[in-house]
Design a protein around this nucleic acid. Structure first.
Lengths: 138, 138
DNA sequence: GCTTGACCCCGTAGCGACTCCAGACTGCAG
DNA sequence: CTGCAGTCTGGAGTCGCTACGGGGTCAAGC
């Protein structure tokens, strides 16, 4: 299979496949007489694994670590669990941060009805009143 | 005030201030005899405004638009409301996506207890079983 | 044989919002 | 005078792609 077919099966882009190869996540495949990359099912499985991890929003560095475990089936998978736990913690932290952000934005939004002059806009007023007293210059 | 003090008051980094200047969010300030940037309270207020917006996770392009309103107090602030509404919608979409991700990750995590061989790790199994049947090559 | 179009190659630059670095200069305290 | 913190400039690095430009290859249709 050539790169376009591989990408299609994995639901991604040709450029992304070449990018993963450059980054060392996919091994350089053999080439045919025209220099085209030729892939087998094992490469597709590996690519699908990567895309599956990316769908979980994992950074490539972590995916790299997970890929190492595919090649070392006898190793303890404790580190895998740790990676997932850490990632889960990151996601939860991010959610909490965004929820706080959403509350603040809703509050901000409530300060202005539509169609006023910018000078009277409660939103701009709020955004301008951003200097904590102890940080203000003397 | 010099750039370090300005940055400290705004709770940010010197490099960030210079970056904002390069990006046109802060006007180039006057320089003293040694070429050091000298700032007044107005610049600090503007920088604090930007950082406040960034704390709301707004992209610099939107902040640029909001800054335009500070210079045009007679304009209608309808566009400001629209910007906040759009941003709020983005934040809510992102939260929903991350919550779905969190559920999937928790599910994934439940597939493996600690200390097994990688070959038996339920997490790796799940990640590998990523190929939908209709996408698999013939 | 010739064109058209889809596919592939490589290398490079761009995104957003910083962050860090090298190498030089300035300002102030001890 | 020495040392160190602060500042200057320009450029590169981060992350995960994405989009270009300029070419080669291949199968089908005329």
């Amino acid at each position: 299979m050539r790169i376009g077919e591989l990408a299609r099966h994995a639901g991604t882009e040709v450029e992304t496949v070449r990018y993963y190869e450059r980054e060392g996540l996919l091994p350089p495949p053999p080439r045919d007489a025209s220099g085209y990359r030729r892939y087998g099912p094992a490469q597709l499985q590996r690519l699908a694994f990567i895309r599956h991890c990316r769908a979980f929003d994992m950074p490539l560095a972590e995916i790299r670590e997970l890929l190492d475990f595919l090649a070392a089936p006898e190793r303890s998978c404790q580190h895998i669990n740790d990676l997932i736990d850490q990632h889960l913690a990151r996601v939860r932290t991010r959610i909490a941060g965004l929820q706080a952000l959403e509350r603040q934005l809703s509050e901000l939004r409530s300060h202005c009805a539509s169609g006023q002059r910018a000078a009277d806009c409660g939103i701009l007023q709020e955004l301008l009143a951003a200097l904590p007293a102890d940080d203000a210059p003397g």
